[in-house]
Write a protein that binds this DNA or RNA. Structure first.
Length: 439
RNA sequence: GUCCGGAUAGUGUAGCGGCCUAUCAUGAAGCCCUGUCGAGGCUUCGACCCGGGUUCAAAUCCCGGUCCGGACGCCA
């Protein structure tokens, strides 16, 4: 039975006449009108209507359907019947219905859209929540985004790599790391593939990208933070910050364009039309950004990171003037950025670091990196860190490493802004936040 | 972590001192119904987060706890 030919519901059309089909899926709804019963069967691609007539359908099938519970898994073999009154212009008249797995009731939540559930309830029963077509659509689009990122970066000469997530030291300072037990030693979950990417520049890989999980042990509790996220990271040799910003803006446009082209059905299901930004994106200097925020009433000190309110004001002003959602904030104060960001030669208090913003959300940040071992050691000291603990990091810089630049792009933030999703938890199958560790 | 809201059937909600033996929807069980597409009609089932207090009387007011949401903070 499992090896039999199976048709997805979207492959069936009214033009198929009375062809035999076999569908497999979940019982979405049963509407028993007495003399006629409609059973809606849902699979990954859609919903098909199976119609049973009390007078002509074999009684065993009628009673089988009457005893089915919602969300049970069934296969239906039957004939296609073009029917104007049926959704999609066809229905399936069954010859055989098999129950493969019975669903208990009541269900932990509604799957048909009649009753909304809180995010908490949905995440507790995520396996059911993910059955809902509009939730499923997010992850179909996520797949398209990943596909499109891979094809774009590959066509730009980047090699996909994977680097360890279990690491020995808390390398970057900055964010808090999750400690774990690694046999008899302490280890950490990696916060960024940064140092590995740079080692690969020393190793002569020239251009690499990695798509993988990163972990942040920060106790933040907001709509746009998670403790485990997927980072799209690149590093490019013989390149500066301007070069990688150009790659980034073209990547964003490419992803938006491809998603609009390839994921139309899922976008319609979510009722969103992504707004494509065309390169070049606005490049706003940090100094200009804080000026805009000050004019909008925010009190900011040069040298500090932007507040959420400041980001909102800046995002709105930029949107008014450029009509675009995406923009870069460039020339950040060196002290606000990680030690490996390259300071400008003639103005070392600002660095060749940038953030890519979508309105008020930071979706990516990157920089040209320092590739000189002495300068790097100096910067480590200036940030109050111990150069001794960075020895294995510093080693590749002593034996020939080209100038290089790169960025990290948050996949979930990209999806949020692409699909206008309010809470980042909706963009991850099984989100990990301050409170949630299962499922 | 701070501030502000909130917690009522499986799910989503109304009620905010006595009219609550708690509203409505959805769901489940049963009955009627041959074109539903949030089908319809009738019957039944199912809930006040935990602990303490105030009061003749608490779902409702007060205190503590737990959990949730939002904003902010923290954050390559």
């Amino acid at each position: 039975m499992h090896s039999e030919r199976r048709d997805y519901t979207d492959q069936i059309t009214p033009e198929m006449g009375s062809e035999e089909v076999t569908i497999a899926g979940w019982v979405h709804e049963i509407r028993d009108l007495g003399g006629i019963i409609f059973m809606l069967v849902r699979d990954r691609e859609g919903i098909a209507q199976v119609t049973l007539f009390k007078k002509t359908t074999p009684p065993r099938l009628v009673s089988a359907v009457k005893s089915l519970s919602r969300e049970s898994v069934v296969t239906v073999r039957g004939r296609v019947k073009p029917e104007k009154k049926a959704p999609g212009g066809y229905e399936i008249v069954p010859d055989e219905i098999q129950l493969l797995s019975k669903a208990a009731s009541p269900l932990p939540m509604d799957t048909t859209g009649k009753v909304d559930a809180d995010l908490e309830t949905r995440l507790d029963s995520r396996f059911i929540d993910l059955r809902r077509p509009e939730v499923h659509a997010i992850f179909r689009i996520r797949h398209h985004v990943l596909q499109s990122v891979r094809s774009f970066l590959t066509s730009e000469g980047f090699i996909e790599v994977t680097t360890p997530k279990v690491v020995a030291t808390a390398t970057e300072g900055g964010t808090a790391l999750f400690p774990i037990t690694y046999f008899e030693r302490e280890a950490f979950l990696n916060q960024s593939p940064q140092l590995f990417k740079q080692m690969l520049m020393s190793a002569g890989f020239d251009r690499v990208f990695e798509i993988g999980p990163i972990f942040r042990a920060e106790e933040h509790d907001t709509r746009k933070h998670l403790n485990e996220v997927t980072s799209i990271d690149i590093e490019a040799s013989f390149a500066d910050h301007n070069d990688v910003m150009k790659i980034l803006e073209r990547l964003i446009t490419h992803v938006y364009t491809e998603v609009c082209r390839d994921a139309e059905k899922s976008l319609n299901r979510l009722k969103v039309t992504p707004e494509i930004s065309e390169p070049p994106f606005e490049r706003l200097k940090y100094a200009e950004a804080i000026e805009i925020a000050r004019e909008g009433g925010e009190e900011l000190v040069w040298g500090e990171d932007l507040t959420t309110a400041a980001e909102t004001i800046i995002g709105e002003v930029i949107h008014e003037t450029t009509k675009a959602n995406h923009y870069f904030i460039i020339d950040w104060p060196t002290e606000t950025k990680p030690f490996y960001a390259m300071p400008h030669e003639n103005e070392p208090e600002i660095s060749k670091a940038f953030d890519l913003m979508h309105r008020n959300i930071e979706i990516s940040s990157g920089a040209q990196r320092i590739h000189n071992a002495e300068q790097l050691t100096e910067r480590i000291k200036e940030q109050g860190l111990e150069p001794e603990s960075f020895e294995s990091y510093l080693k590749p810089f002593k034996y020939g490493i080209p100038p290089h630049a790169g960025w990290g792009l948050g996949l979930e933030r990209l999806l949020m802004t692409l699909l206008n999703i309010e809470n980042i938890r909706n963009t991850v199958l099984f989100p990990r936040d301050r409170k949630r560790l299962s499922p």
